[in-house]
């Protein structure tokens, strides 16, 4: 940021206080939205002081302590914990499986635009237009996949493949596949063009061009972003159990329904440890591979 406006050297370097960034209508809409939301969301802070059980919020939170750390319960949690890890891994793997092909199709520089298609004859330019169709379909498909939250996918798949972790895998796979595909496409479109041109200058056809010119540049970012998504997947896997898709979420729902708050707190702590652990493993993989 240049401290002095270049055009007017005689003005002291103070910025004139801008007029409000919102117009009158803007402020009106903002205030109306806030007031409307306050009512629609049935906000009633008083309820926090006198909760349903008659105690305060602090009184309720105190009931969660101390966490249930009995050996019996901890041993019982091993299976759901392992399932949660497995759902996150398999879900991310499926997301890559879905996201990569769709992401490649959704990359304009791979389907119809840019250096790969330069110097084409007339017939090729009409073929180019034909390739826009899969591009648009892939973009739309990815947007659809990621706009439906994974919990809703979970609900649907529990209905289709039954209760259990597989439904969770499918939910994460589809929702995250949509996000990964979009980001893969962005990464592929953002690679530097000079190495691609260099590979083409030695006479490479289109396929080697993509494999040796594009992918090596995109690979580190692919790995980094996929690992980041795995870190998110472990959180999703932990809550997908709430809709019956296996793992820790299922256990926390049971504990809350039975009003066994110390057990619920233990499960929250376990999922916290799990998330931390996955962050560590993921950064280790990132360091080793990149």
């Amino acid at each position: 940021m240049a401290p002095f406006p270049q055009s007017s050297p005689w003005i002291l370097p103070t910025t004139k206080p801008k007029s409000s960034p919102l117009s009158f209508t803007g402020w009106f809409v903002l205030v109306a939205a806030l007031v409307g939301s306050y009512h629609l969301a049935e906000i009633s802070p008083g309820k926090l002081l006198h909760t349903q059980g008659g105690s305060s919020l602090w009184g309720l939170l105190a009931e969660f302590f101390p966490p249930d750390l009995s050996a019996e319960f901890l041993l019982y949690l091993i299976v759901p914990t392992v399932k949660t890890i497995q759902i996150s891994i398999m879900g991310t793997a499926l997301a890559i499986l879905i996201g990569l092909p769709l992401g490649i199709l959704a990359t304009s520089t791979l389907t119809f635009a840019g250096i790969l298609f330069e110097g084409g004859s007339l017939s090729r330019s009409s073929r180019r237009r034909l390739w826009m169709l899969p591009y648009l379909l892939a973009r739309g498909g990815l947007s659809l996949l990621r706009s439906i939250p994974e919990i809703v996918w979970g609900l649907l798949f529990v209905r289709i493949v039954g209760l259990g972790p597989f439904a969770g895998v499918l939910a994460i796979g589809l929702a995250y596949g949509g996000m990964l595909g979009k980001v893969y496409a962005e990464i592929l479109e953002g690679v530097k063009q000079s190495p691609v041109e260099a590979v083409r200058a030695v006479g490479a056809r289109r396929f080697p061009l993509v494999v040796y010119g594009l992918f090596p540049q995109a690979f580190p970012n692919f790995v980094a972003y996929s690992l980041y998504r795995w870190e998110c997947a472990i959180r999703s896997a932990a809550i997908l159990g709430l809709v019956g898709a296996g793992g820790l979420g299922q256990e926390i729902e049971v504990s809350m329904k039975m009003l066994n708050y110390p057990q619920a707190l233990t499960i929250i702590l376990v999922s916290f440890i799990l998330v931390t652990l996955v962050d560590r493993v993921s950064s280790w993989i990132r360091r080793t591979l990149l």
Partner: peptide
């Protein structure tokens, strides 16, 4: 931030009852 939204929701539903407020 390490407690997911849906877990917080479970806790607040116990505190203030069903409805949008615990979601907020």
């Amino acid at each position: 931030r390490s407690v997911p939204e849906l877990f917080w929701a479970l806790i607040f539903i116990v505190a203030v009852g069903l409805g949008p407020f615990p979601g907020v």
